[in-house]
């Protein structure tokens, strides 16, 4: 991965004790911003990193300067901030931004899934009369994300006068709780709770799917929980270990080869 600044940032935070992290992160962030701006000169599309430099040190890491296939930059900042609150970088380890969850979701939305693949989309459509019928909408996941991001932006501007990513962290958490409980009243075409459930599932995928799909960068998700990845990468060990309950199996996870 060409994102050198990202690697620097991670090492710095991983090595500092909790108490020192705030200041360390801030220094790291400034260093990263430098890299981001340099990237902007070449790529020409990353001006939002300058804004990030003005944010408090507890803020989530920046959006890495990688090209996107679906989201625009403002949407990418919101998705990044939302995912980061769900799986935040903290003293324990890296977060959703470090794991490139944004890149995963961006790719997911241009995949067959984003276009409603494997979904029966013939009408007529009716609102279910009772529970148990799953999603009954002609909207594709792309439609749902676009409408949800617009509704979320309207809600955040009304509540806080800012976009989601510029709100205070506690405000961001309040919005996520409201989404989860279906209480964000600017949603009209789909329920806030349904969008939240879809987004949460996508965040899980971005953290724990094989890195082949753009997320789980540096195997952050797998390392976090201790999932070894492809067992064949270590020469078929499970058949020798499965009945040896006290033999530890601590390996660096490996992706699909």
């Amino acid at each position: 991965m060409a994102d050198q600044s990202h690697g620097d940032e991670k090492r710095t935070t991983d090595d500092v004790p909790h108490e020192a992290q705030r200041g360390a992160s801030r220094r790291t962030l400034l260093k990263v911003v430098g890299a981001g701006v340099a990237g902007a000169v070449v790529g020409g599309a990353t001006t939002h990193f300058v804004e990030d430099a003005l944010r408090p040190a507890t803020a989530p890491p920046h959006v890495p300067p990688r090209a996107l296939r679906f989201f625009n930059d403002a949407q990418a900042r919101v998705i990044t901030a939302m995912a980061e609150r769900m799986f935040p970088r903290d003293e324990g380890g890296p977060g959703a931004t470090d794991a490139h969850v944004l890149d995963y979701i961006d790719g997911r939305l241009v995949s067959a899934w984003g276009l409603g693949g494997r979904t029966y989309r013939q009408g007529p459509f009716f609102a279910p009369q009772d529970s148990g019928h799953g999603l009954q909408t002609p909207m594709t996941p792309r439609d749902i994300y676009l409408d949800a991001l617009a509704a979320l932006d309207a809600y955040c501007h009304r509540q806080f006068g800012t976009s989601f990513d510029q709100a205070q962290l506690s405000q961001q958490d309040d919005v996520l709780h409201a989404l989860e409980q279906g209480k964000v009243d600017t949603f009209t075409t789909i329920s806030a709770a349904q969008f939240f459930a879809m987004f949460r599932q996508n965040v899980l995928e971005g953290l724990f799917a094989d890195p082949l799909y753009g997320g789980n960068a540096d195997l952050i998700g797998w390392k976090w929980i201790g999932f070894p990845g492809d067992p064949m990468a270590y020469g078929d060990p499970y058949g020798k270990l499965i009945d040896k309950f006290d033999t530890p199996y601590n390996v660096e996870p490996k992706p699909l080869q």
């Binding site: 409603g116 979904t119 029966y120 989309r121 009369q129 009772d130 799953g134 999603l135 009954q136």
Partner: peptide
């Protein structure tokens, strides 16, 4: 592939059956 072929489900004889739009 439920985009091509799926089932409809209703819980009672009087309910309107709705398509199972995605596997689950």
């Amino acid at each position: 592939d439920t985009a091509q072929e799926t089932w409809t489900l209703r819980h009672t004889l009087s309910e309107r059956a709705l398509p199972i739009r995605q596997l689950g």
